[in-house]
Design a binder for these strands. Sequence first.
DNA 1: AAAGCGCACAACCGCACGATA
DNA 2: TTATCGTGCGGTTGTGCGCTT
Length: 390
Amino acid sequence: MGRAPCCDKASVKKGPWSPEEDAKLKAYIEENGTGGNWIALPQKIGLKRCGKSCRLRWLNYLRPNIKHGDFTEEEEHIICSLYISIGSRWSIIAAQLPGRTDNDIKNYWNTKLKKKLLGKRAPSRRARANQDPYLAAGGGNMCSTSGGGNSCGGAATAAQALSASALERIQLHMRLQGIYGGSFVCTNNHSAAPAPQQWPKLEALLHANKQLLPGSSLPTDAMATTVSVHQPQHLVDQSLGAGGAGEAAVQAEQLSSAAGADYMAPGSFERQKLGFYSPSAEAETAGVEMSSVPMAGGYGGAGFGPHHDELYDFLYSKYGPVGGLAQGGHIPPLPELQCPDGAAVAGADEKFSTWAASCDYGTAAGHHQLQGNSINSSLLHDYVIGGYDQ
DNA sequence: AAAGCGCACAACCGCACGATA
DNA sequence: TTATCGTGCGGTTGTGCGCTT
């Protein structure tokens, strides 16, 4: 049963607000408040608008002390830091910037800041309509149809979107490190309190604003990162061994209990999506999962962790099986992954043109790192994307 | 000059969630 | 317990303007 619409769409006006409408709404709210009921408000003041539309207009434009116009550097920094840490939770980010609305910040990010910091051009809507064939086909070989299945289509899209966002955040972090200097390596502790150390710069900010953030705990990637991941039949078969669906199901069951993953029928499954800075317990979980399930293209063995997990999902969703050359894996060019500290090596603009034999999850003195290195062996140089301490 | 394109901003849409009857 | 309602949120779309070809 669908829910009733919030208003009669046929009789409400849509589109830009006129100055008269603005004046009516503003005058009424300033005098009477919203009355706690936005839906009823337009009728009260004789506006042919949906209540939601009134609310949005008030919050984003008419409300007192709304700032419009250019963002300051400090505001940009706060937006970047929070975006790296919590992603597109615009309302939370907006709460840290007095006078700015989530809509404003979202627009600013999408149209300016992202390009400025990541050097990307947001795809135009015309371009979007004629998207990357991989995406247009449902995420490479991830899924070929829409809807229907429990995790096909929408879930694959969601996973891809999340991974793309995750990569964007990796890139942003790398870029910021390049700008601000400092160590690439961040640590995280298992215990929830005190608040785990987060990305450099951000931590101080979060501590400073801790009391302003909603809820008692800081939002982190480790929270709210369960997503559906769809994998094609061949990969699931490959991953779970040659025993076919029956054996795969048994193995999946075992893996499920061992790794906390909720495997579903071959073709799609759900599992814990580990964040960039998962606590070590989650990393251990990832270790079990990753070491137990040989990756397509031959990646396997112990030692993979949440970063690899995240990156692998992204690479897989975009390019299909990813693996080392030795394992016959497909090595995609990744021009968007740019070396952040290029100055440290010859050829300042060196890129991660491959992850072959380089995207790995290493351990040194109890410190786990996801690192990549250049394919140019003469300039072999590790770039640590992130890490955590055990 | 005109069409195409990119950009920025405002507004809309649909979903999730909590409150409540 | 369940259906409904109101609100908040994030993603997406509409639209106008200026620039480029």
